[in-house]
């Protein structure tokens, strides 16, 4: 009975692992094969990798898309970290009844489905397009603004600030630092790991965001990576080797971030629930 149970557990977990990993293996194998071989179900590495990459860079505007995605993700992450940590710190360290009420109201915004506010947001950015083209429709600024402040990250920073030693704030004040000075000189350096975790989540969210850029960006040269891949995926005569190459390139940054900073990544997920 016991061996039977153990066999069952290992078989079950192995199957789950195979199912989880297989699409990745298939992606990695496909970028080395010709499109025809991919459709024939070839699962062995081929010799077509360089050819696929050449075709990808020659026929698809992947470089501008990578640049756009990077600009958006980096600026969004910096803004998110700055604004959310300021707010999380303010709500926790300078706690007051009024702020607690405001905080609860802000949390409610996490329940707002994006599809519900997408149309008004589109109209809002449309109405300022003429006066402020940098944050109007079809601008990277318009992609960044609504995603740069989310209640989730404020909540995240507040939860983590609960573990921040309050004595340090007092010590900073006694040393003559201003309230803002305490934040920048003491809080920020002490909370490095929290910032790292938030940066990972924010970067990945932004890098992978699809619906809002799809709504607000129109010209092909403004396209981000998910828009480009979606476009490639819907073509009628797909070159599988090339499309898989694009997908692998798009997944590499997030996969790298994950493997290099696994601990922070999991800590980041946990930070959103504990407390």
């Amino acid at each position: 009975m016991k061996t039977f149970k153990r066999i069952f557990i290992y078989t079950f977990l192995s199957l789950a692992a195979i199912v989880s990993i297989f699409p990745f293996l298939w992606m990695l194998v496909s970028i080395t094969n010709k499109s025809v071989d991919v459709t024939r179900g070839r699962l062995l590495p081929g010799t077509h990798l360089i050819e696929n990459m050449k075709t990808l860079f020659a026929t698809v505007d992947i470089v501008p898309a990578l640049i756009n995605s990077t600009i958006i993700a980096v600026i969004t992450t910096i803004l998110t970290l700055l604004l959310a940590s300021l707010a999380g710190y303010g709500f926790e360290i300078h706690r007051s009844r009024g702020k607690d009420i405001v905080f609860t109201v802000l949390l409610l915004s996490m329940m707002i489905p994006f599809a519900a506010i997408m149309v008004p947001l589109y109209r809002m950015f449309g109405s300022i397009s003429d006066t402020a083209p940098l944050i109007g429709i079809d601008s990277l600024g318009a992609v960044i603004l609504p995603t740069a402040t989310t209640a989730f990250f404020i909540f995240f920073f507040r939860q983590n600030t609960k573990m921040f030693p309050k004595d340090l704030v007092e010590a900073g004040r006694i040393d003559g630092l201003s309230e803002i000075g305490v934040f920048f000189r003491i809080y920020m350096p002490t909370m490095k790991t929290t910032y790292a975790a938030a940066a990972i989540i924010s970067f990945m969210n932004s890098w992978n965001n699809y619906l809002w850029p799809l709504v607000i960006l129109q010209s092909p040269e403004k396209r981000t990576i998910p828009l480009l891949i979606s476009n490639l995926g819907s073509s009628y005569s797909p070159d599988y080797g090339v499309i898989m190459s694009a997908i692998v390139i798009a997944t590499l940054p997030t996969a790298l971030v994950f493997f290099l900073m696994q601990k922070h990544f999991v800590a980041g997920m946990m930070g959103s629930v504990k407390g």
Partner: peptide, 19 residues
């Protein structure tokens, strides 16, 4: 204390509650 949180309050109001 309000200075720390005001930008986020305004931004979330503009980009979430107002829409």
């Amino acid at each position: 204390g309000w200075l720390f949180v005001i930008v986020s309050i305004i931004a979330i109001t503009i980009f979430n509650f107002y829409p």
